[in-house]
């Protein structure tokens, strides 16, 4: 399963880049993320609770950022596992300045799931992942607008 998209964000590219790596922001913006901790340079762990079709469950995820070319590009690698199975996902994000105060963000992703989620959630998976990703960027966008206002 894979997909791609893009979004226009308020904020200079450097700020957007930093926000996307801030565990607090990530925890607030990732649907079902109950806890997010930095455990090392560009490495995080997270507790996620997601329901896909009839499979609701909790996942422990290891997240790492790779191929970092600050502030333009990075790859996010996620390996999550829990009672309903596992999720292996990779996202590549490319940031391009759009004027001085806004940024264009383009992303591609691919994900593989296994276990119960694959067995009973496969039909829904494409739609659910699209939903989660769209929701994530929508919240990032709000986060950017919020921080701009407070700034």
């Amino acid at each position: 399963m894979n997909g791609k998209g893009n979004i226009h964000l308020n904020g200079p590219v450097e700020v957007v880049f930093e926000k996307l790596r801030d565990p607090e922001v990530l925890q607030a913006c990732i649907m079902g993320c109950q806890k997010m901790e930095r455990v090392g340079e560009n490495r995080y762990t997270a507790d996620l609770a997601i329901g896909i079709a009839s499979v609701k469950g909790k996942y422990k995820a290891d997240i790492s950022l790779e191929d970092i070319e600050a502030p333009r590009h990075f790859k996010l690698v996620l390996h999550g596992k829990g009672a309903p199975g596992f999720v292996d996902a990779e996202g590549v994000l490319d940031l391009t300045p759009h004027g001085e105060q806004t940024t264009d963000l383009a992303y591609t992703y691919q994900a593989e799931v296994g276990g119960k989620i694959a067995a009973v959630g496969q039909r829904m998976l494409g739609g659910v992942s699209k939903l989660i990703i769209k929701d994530f960027f929508k919240k990032i966008k709000k986060e950017m607008e919020k921080s701009q206002k407070s700034a």
Binding site: A53, S54, V113, K116, A118, A119, Q122, R123
Partner: peptide, 9 residues
Amino acid sequence: QFLSGSFMD
């Protein structure tokens, strides 16, 4: 991966 684990699938 097994894809038909319910009567919906």
